[in-house]
Design a protein around this nucleic acid. Structure first.
Lengths: 297, 297
DNA sequence: TGGGTTGATAGATAAAAGCTATCAATGATA
DNA sequence: TATCATTGATAGCTTTTATCTATCAACCCA
């Protein structure tokens, strides 16, 4: 029964019988039969079909909601019992927005000191994707903007604030300044994240409200790529302070505070709101609460 | 998998492999194999055995806790989907303390007007048993004293207050009074509920604090039996006002308020604290909230 | 020590779940 | 409009799992 519910979850993720089957490690007919069996047990069609997957019926959506809960609880049970036997172990799956990637180590390092047998998988995702992954039980926790409304299904632990800096060569225009305004930044050709990233949308908004418009010369979904361009001395970017520090500032590359307005975004840990949480997630929340005061400025 | 978890729940209820198997509608070897299979999947012994059932290991207790949640959610899912198809239907299982039995009709009657396809099973149980039945998913709701600490796992909706009355023949001693004290009641031979009932323990406490002691001439777990004795005119009893009214007062039988102190107990509806509740339970809570103001005095 | 109780084990059988191969329906493309 | 690719359903077969009956070993109590 629980396996069949997992079929349903995979189908919701993949929106495709064949790929969902592959994700579950079974063949397509097996998955089809499993879905049909749940439908028979419930006495209602759950999936709208028509020679291809067309989404779920209203009843299907409700079943999906329950399935997420039931499957999630089953996994949590397994993990809790394993932890009782072996101490904290297993794999903690975390997704973070790119600008927060550098801060993840502030959580994983103290975590690992306490619980050396836990392994990590850390993904770089957009804030929207992170919430989806949490919903679909594909990650245990996310690190993202806490202003993204909590949806009621997740708990948020604030971690630190993003302060924006103009990253630029010292001998470029503005390169010798102690601080710059958003209006000034809007005049410079920039390397920024792609528009699907919330960070980019925040910066766009700030540039626009300062009277400029956002036409970055270069877009990427990788902070490394942006930074490597800045390092050439020929490009500039806008980045949160922390990640700029982590990537390292040289004599020639400066991170200049941007004011008017002094924009701040809060970044936090996001975990599914479900009691009880898995032991590994509980431990992560503990670490987050412990280190958060040391990160805030 | 879920079936196996049901085996475990049955075993926790029955504390006996054979009876648990019977309750699940399978043979004893099947249940034994099912339990063993979960133990293998978890990699831990869950049941302490030794030629007979000896309880659960600590890991077993944790698995039981999860199993209750998972099995409960699965049933709730089924019921919710059924309700979407057929409107509100199914069976609502309620257990009430004996002194509240007469008040159940105040819930079931308006409920049935709105949702005529829901059937009821109503059990008379002690307050302790009601909480156990709720834990074990054997009832959907209870009606009991709300002072019984909520345990965090249940929600309580206050319904009405129990006021105590001396039920006695008009020509018996005290029979002509407008009110009596607990100290006076303590002098009269009484028919009371058995000591496993909280109502009895409450009355015992009141009698004792008034300086009397509680040596009822007759004990029973049935309010009908108590009342039928009072009706003979030769016995007296202490009952909540509402049930006395329901059983009917004749010219010869009076219900006399008992004062010093004027004791009041709050009775309420108790449902599992789990979101979302089943549609039938949700409807019951709605009815309870609606009728409660009309019951309170 | 013997009878009754309890849960485990063995062996047989029935039920299910899964796979491969194939088909029908749909949609896109030339 | 004819052709081809995609997608999910279906059929038939095999393997695996679940369950039953019958029996056994351990234990308890008298």
């Amino acid at each position: 029964m629980i396996d069949k519910l997992e079929f349903l979850l995979a189908l919701a993720r993949e929106k495709h019988f064949g790929r969902a089957a592959e994700a579950c490690g079974v063949t397509q007919p097996t998955l089809s039969a499993g879905v049909k069996q749940i439908e028979e047990q419930m006495g209602v069609l759950l999936v709208r079909r028509g020679s291809r997957f067309q989404g779920f019926t209203p009843e299907g959506e409700r079943v999906l909601d329950w399935a997420r809960r039931i499957v999630g609880d089953t996994r949590n049970m397994r993990e809790e019992i394993n932890s009782l036997r072996l101490g904290l172990s297993g794999r903690l799956r975390i997704a973070a927005i790119p600008t927060a990637l550098a801060m993840v180590a502030a959580l994983t390092t103290p975590y690992r000191e306490r619980h050396p047998n836990v392994q990590f998988t850390i993904l770089s995702r957009t804030s929207v994707e992170i919430l989806e992954l949490l919903e679909n039980l594909e990650i245990d926790a996310g690190i993202t903007y806490v202003e993204n409304e909590p949806l009621g299904r997740v708990s948020m632990i604030p971690l630190y604030h993003e302060h924006y800096r103009l990253l630029t060569s010292a001998d470029a225009p503005l390169g010798n300044r102690d601080k710059v305004t958003w209006a000034e930044v809007a005049q410079v050709p920039l390397c920024l994240l792609t528009p699907d990233m919330q960070n980019r949308r925040i910066i766009d908004r700030l540039l626009k409200s300062a009277g400029g418009d956002s036409r970055p010369t270069l877009e990427s979904d990788s902070m490394i790529l942006l930074y490597s361009h800045v390092r050439t001395g020929r490009w500039a970017s806008v980045m949160p302070e922390k990640i700029a520090q982590t990537l390292g500032l040289t004599d020639t590359i400066r991170a200049i505070p941007i004011v008017e307005p002094e924009a701040v975004q809060t970044i936090g840990l996001v975990v599914p709101k479900r009691e009880p949480m898995t032991p590994t997630t509980t431990a992560l929340v503990e670490v987050a609460r412990r280190v958060a005061p040391t990160l805030t400025d």
